[in-house]
Simulated scan of single mutants.
Amino acid sequence: MTLTNAPMLETKRLILRGPEKADADAMINFLMDETRAVGFGGYTKRSDAWRWFTLNVGHWHWHGYGYFTIQDKETGKPAGISGIWNPEGWPEPEVGWVVFDGFEGKGIAFEAATRVRQWAYDDLGFTTLTSNIVPGNSRSIRLAERMGATYERTYDNPNMGEDMLYRHPGPEAA
């Protein structure tokens, strides 16, 4: 198996790049925020959150894709993550997103996730993608629907419990 380095993608306001050691604290802080990280499981121990962060690095090498760090061009700070996620037990690859504290309400998740989806279709050859959303996460549901995704079904996610699967339009419509 060869190791995969994440490409660098850009949008008007964002750089999407592979995870770096310098991003760990921002991601770990997010993962340990019980309210904000509900869709990612949330962690009470820093060591468990660190494992999730490094799991993403391994995910890139295993699959050739994973979560990009969203870097705000204006500040240079990590603003969140967005990418294609497909760990063991997932029904199929999904486009996911998280925006860190202080970066909400600016359209960053939409801008990043739309660019990630385009990359998955154009460069990776995906023909379909989903987004798996914890029931009650109204902000993620609105974002998925804004991207053109539609509710398909509820299923039992082996890591998260009940999850709603939203189907994105294919490359011809995206």
Rank of each mutant, 00 (worst) to 15 (best):
T2I: 13
T2Q: 10
T4Y: 09
N5G: 05
N5I: 01
P7R: 09
P7E: 07
P7A: 05
M8W: 00
M8K: 14
L9N: 01
E10K: 15
T11R: 07
L14W: 13
L14S: 14
I15H: 14
R17Y: 06
R17L: 04
E20W: 12
A22K: 05
D23F: 03
A26L: 10
N29I: 02
F30I: 02
R36I: 04
V38I: 11
G39Q: 00
G39K: 12
F40G: 06
G41K: 15
T44E: 01
T44P: 09
T44N: 14
S47Y: 13
D48A: 05
A49W: 05
R51Y: 05
F53K: 03
G58D: 06
W60F: 12
G64V: 04
G64T: 09
Y65I: 00
G66P: 07
Y67Q: 06
Y67C: 01
F68A: 13
T69M: 06
I70Y: 06
I70T: 08
D72H: 10
E74C: 13
T75F: 08
T75N: 09
A79C: 07
G80C: 11
G80K: 13
I81V: 13
G83Q: 15
G83I: 07
I84E: 00
I84D: 07
W85S: 07
W85V: 06
N86T: 00
N86I: 02
P87E: 11
E88L: 00
G89L: 15
P91M: 15
P91A: 13
E92G: 03
E94G: 04
V95L: 04
W97D: 04
V98G: 10
V98N: 12
V98E: 03
V99M: 07
V99N: 08
V99K: 12
D101V: 02
E104Q: 04
K106C: 03
G107V: 01
G107D: 01
A109C: 06
A109M: 14
E111R: 10
E111W: 00
A112W: 15
A113L: 05
T114Q: 15
V116G: 08
Y121D: 11
Y121Q: 13
D122A: 10
D122H: 12
G125S: 08
G125A: 13
L129N: 11
L129D: 09
L129G: 12
S131N: 06
S131W: 11
S131Y: 01
N132G: 02
I133K: 03
P135G: 09
G136C: 13
S138N: 13
S138R: 14
R139F: 03
I141P: 04
R142Q: 13
L143E: 10
L143Q: 11
E145V: 13
R146V: 03
R146M: 13
R146W: 12
A149M: 01
A149G: 00
Y151H: 01
D156K: 10
D156Q: 04
D156P: 05
P158V: 06
N159V: 00
M160H: 00
M160R: 07
G161C: 08
G161S: 14
E162R: 03
D163F: 11
L165H: 14
Y166E: 04
R167E: 08
G170H: 02
G170R: 10
P171D: 10
E172A: 15
